[in-house]
Amino acid sequence: MKRTPKTLLVLALVVVVGMAFRVSWNALRDVARAIGADHTAATLYPFVVDGLMALALVATLVLTADARRFALRVLGTYTGASLVLNYVHGLVPALHGASVDWGRLADWNPANWALVLLATSLPVGSIYFGSDLVAKVLHHQPTPAANAEKTVESVSNRSMADQGEPTPEPRVVNAVPIPRPVQVGFLKPTLPLKPMPAIEPVPARPASTVAADSVRTRRATGRVPDVARSTRPKRTPGELLQEARAASADWPDAHLTADRIRKTVHTSAEKARGLRDALIAERAA
């Protein structure tokens, strides 16, 4: 949705809510006068009830989980209370002219007591619930679920070159336990110990000789066994051409390819290309 329609929609909503507040403000002001509020208090009374409804609605859009459910309960409670007081204002015509008795909202005493209790408790509830909602909104921290989804999506959308080389897994080396030496210092030998022969020191070889030996490659010695040799006799180019000519005698020109000749006469790709050129030249001649 474009920005201009959104702006018009929000402005229309503000106008409708403002007109609805004006209608409700008249009824709540008369109810506040009936329960003993002065002129200034009666004027501010609708802002206490309907204003908290607007605050709870904004809190539901920001909060999550249990805090959001609490804001929804506050919104539903004050919406129902405002609806009841507007309904009472419509049922009691004396409230319109402020000629009703002080503290009298209904003829039946239990109903009148309940209505007066409701009307007088709404300002106190606005202080408590409004402060709690504001504190919850200020201390609210958005969950990182949305950011994590965006991160995973961005990583999956990147090419392999952008993601970089994968981290190699650590190599696990099978550690062979080294046997611990046996301490024989405190054991009494039963047999006479033979003296160890002296080890003559090996003269150190120069670094150039070691490097030359390491670079030098060993050549294969000995003859190749007969089993490892190929049993197919080596064919001359004339014999290969004769076999290819006999095998491709009934082939059309489109099937005369180097790959097919290579598979038929069992030769290398380079020789197959030479045979193909020779056969094509013979057919052209």
Rank of each mutant, 00 (worst) to 15 (best):
residue 200 E to F: 08
residue 142 P to H: 03
residue 154 S to L: 04
residue 180 R to W: 09
residue 238 G to E: 11
residue 137 V to Q: 04
residue 157 N to V: 07
residue 135 A to G: 08
residue 142 P to E: 05
residue 155 V to A: 14
residue 179 P to G: 04
residue 161 A to E: 12
residue 137 V to H: 01
residue 122 L to N: 02
residue 233 P to H: 11
residue 130 G to M: 03
residue 217 T to M: 07
residue 168 P to L: 01
residue 209 T to A: 12
residue 226 D to Q: 04
residue 134 V to S: 07
residue 208 S to T: 07
residue 179 P to R: 03
residue 212 A to K: 09
residue 144 P to F: 04
residue 237 P to S: 00
residue 212 A to C: 06
residue 217 T to K: 10
residue 160 M to H: 14
residue 145 A to N: 06
residue 180 R to P: 02
residue 150 K to A: 10
residue 223 R to M: 02
residue 144 P to E: 15
residue 187 L to Y: 14
residue 224 V to M: 11
residue 143 T to N: 06
residue 181 P to S: 10
residue 135 A to F: 11
residue 190 T to A: 15
residue 206 P to T: 01
residue 168 P to E: 01
residue 177 P to D: 00
residue 141 Q to G: 04
residue 164 G to P: 01
residue 211 A to L: 12
residue 233 P to M: 10
residue 177 P to G: 00
residue 152 V to D: 14
residue 234 K to G: 03
residue 201 P to R: 05
residue 198 A to Q: 09
residue 228 A to M: 04
residue 193 L to W: 02
residue 205 R to C: 06
residue 127 I to E: 06
residue 230 S to N: 09
residue 229 R to W: 05
residue 197 P to V: 02
residue 239 E to N: 06
residue 220 A to H: 02
residue 139 H to I: 04
residue 148 A to N: 06
residue 175 A to L: 13
residue 122 L to V: 10
residue 234 K to Q: 09
residue 147 N to I: 05
residue 182 V to W: 06
residue 190 T to G: 08
residue 198 A to G: 10
residue 236 T to C: 02
residue 154 S to R: 15
residue 129 F to L: 04
